[in-house]
Amino acid sequence: MKPYPFKYVRAEGLAAVFQQFEEHGDDAQVLAGGQSLMPVLNMRLSAPRVLVDINRIEELRGIALDGGEVRIGALTRHREVLESEVVRTHLPLLAEAMPHVAHVAVRNRGTLGGSLALADPAAEMPACAVALGATLVLRSAAGERTVAAEDFYQGLYETERRPDEVLTEARYPIAGPGYHGAFQEFARRQGDFAVVGVAARGRVESGVLSELRLVYFGCEGHARLARQTALAAEAGGRPYTPQVFAALKDALAEELDPMENMHGSRATKLHMAQTLTGRALQALLARAGGAVHG
């Protein structure tokens, strides 16, 4: 189980990466943390001719509080996100999700940008980015552009990133007071990819829920923002009783179309998503200080 041969290029800066793209086009593959790419290479499921290692590009690392947003460089390791005070304070949803991401040795090496760019349908980071309304920064030789996370994810491992672009940063807006998040994931074992999960974020004022975003992962081909279900939740009225959450099941069944896989049929995953939706909303409201009645 050894990779196909490839040429290895260590890029010291983004310019060198773009040059490799220019020279080799689709045959060049960016190597970030490698925690998803390396297994694929070892199993010979992919055969890039050139591997462009971006791990030494310092400008892609770091977590910064910048005005109304938190900027996280693409090469920032999962561990750094997990341990970040800035993230804990300003992006509690991300902090809540991070312990679900793999295990210590993988978090030490795997990167936020790698996870966001790969777009694994069962991964936590894309769902959180969509739930938090993050903006992703893409850079190419031609310049920089930004894409809203919810527009970035297009299909199964399909994103808005063009082959000549590198995802360099994720920018998470800092929510004002009244916004709360909740993260619910079911995995077969600690640290496994989700069977089903939901990242929820919304505003609660005087016990009224608004601006709710429910993002499901492990369900469809990519992190899926369920707008109708969120509207149904908001419209459910006060108090948010278990009956209100029960009513959401129909909305979710209408809106979400989970893919069957080894861990569950469509029906099973939908049932799990319904369960997790209720739990996420209860947790979100509980954090807002509102009692869940019933």
Binding site: F186, R188, H263, G264, S265, H271, M272
Partner: peptide, 13 residues
Amino acid sequence: ATPERILRALGVV
């Protein structure tokens, strides 16, 4: 006893 099988046994899926 996978989650899928338990949910089936419970008749919910």
